[in-house]
């Protein structure tokens, strides 16, 4: 049996299997979008699922713009939805 961890998404408690990604945990909880786009305000969630497209950006424990498909869940983790925040340098 796999271990369960507890986390919150916008304050709502969800559970996940230890070792899952944040994106998988949200998917299993029936949550399919967690940010809105800058221009059109459209909902986005997982797309490429492997760290390439950056559609699934989410705030993890206060750290913005983390790829939900790559970050593993951790017990007590706080996830927050939101828009894209421009804080990183890009090529």
């Amino acid at each position: 049996m796999t271990d369960q961890v507890s986390l919150t998404f916008d304050g709502v408690a969800i559970t996940a299997a230890a070792g899952q990604s944040v994106g998988a945990a949200l998917t299993d909880a029936g949550i399919r979008s967690w940010r809105s786009t800058r221009r059109g305000g459209r909902p986005r969630g997982l797309f490429c699922g492997i760290g390439v497209c950056f559609d699934c950006l989410v705030t993890v424990d206060g750290r913005p713009n983390q790829r939900a498909c790559l970050v593993p869940v951790r017990d007590g983790m706080r996830l927050e939805s939101g828009g894209l925040r421009e804080v990183d340098a890009r090529g």
């Binding site: 979008s33 997982l46 490429c48 699922g49 492997i50």
Partner: peptide, 11 residues
């Protein structure tokens, strides 16, 4: 949302 790359679904 709900449209994904096939590889993402597989992952």
């Amino acid at each position: 949302p709900g449209v994904m790359a096939a590889g993402g679904v597989q992952a």
